[in-house]
């Protein structure tokens, strides 16, 4: 029995069936794996270069609004000088800075880095200022990006 199968192993019918078997297995396996990977992948975020629009009323003078810009945390602040948008990611180790309204500055909760309203480092370990993001005012809205 064993021998007769071995003899026919070069048979084209046998190799065709082998290929067919492997193809069916591969397709079935892919059919299981593909939905699982899609299911577990995060939902598509904002596309590259997409702008974020918010209403001016959402950010009164002295306040800050945190939002997501290109998939990363960003912040819009309204001072007497106007609107500023900054990346909210501390340049030290990537924690998200918080806005101290009474002091008018940002502080990083992780290692107490401090930034002013323009993102410049005031004290602490951060090596670079917070990244600036362009802001355009249009009517009752502001456009970030």
């Amino acid at each position: 029995m064993e021998k007769s199968i071995e003899k026919n192993s070069s048979n084209s019918k046998r190799s065709f069936l082998k290929l067919l078997f492997l193809t069916v297995m591969g397709v079935s396996f892919g059919g299981v794996i593909y939905p699982i990977i899609r299911y577990l992948s995060p939902l598509s975020q904002q596309k590259e270069g997409e702008k974020v629009e918010i209403l001016k009323d959402e950010v009164p003078i002295g306040k800050a609004k945190f939002l997501t810009y290109k998939g990363n945390p960003a912040v819009v602040i309204h001072t007497k000088a106007g609107f500023t948008a900054l990346s909210a990611v501390c340049t030290h180790l990537g924690c998200i800075v918080k806005w101290l309204e009474d002091k008018g500055e940002f502080q990083c909760p992780c290692h107490a880095g401090r930034f002013d309203v323009t993102g410049k480092v005031l004290s602490g370990p951060p090596p670079n200022p917070l990244l600036q993001i362009a802001v355009v005012e249009s009517g009752a809205k502001i456009v970030i990006g």
Partner: peptide, 9 residues
């Protein structure tokens, strides 16, 4: 409704 293949699982 929203998660890809969520309906399936």
């Amino acid at each position: 409704n929203n998660v890809p293949f969520g309906w399936l699982f």
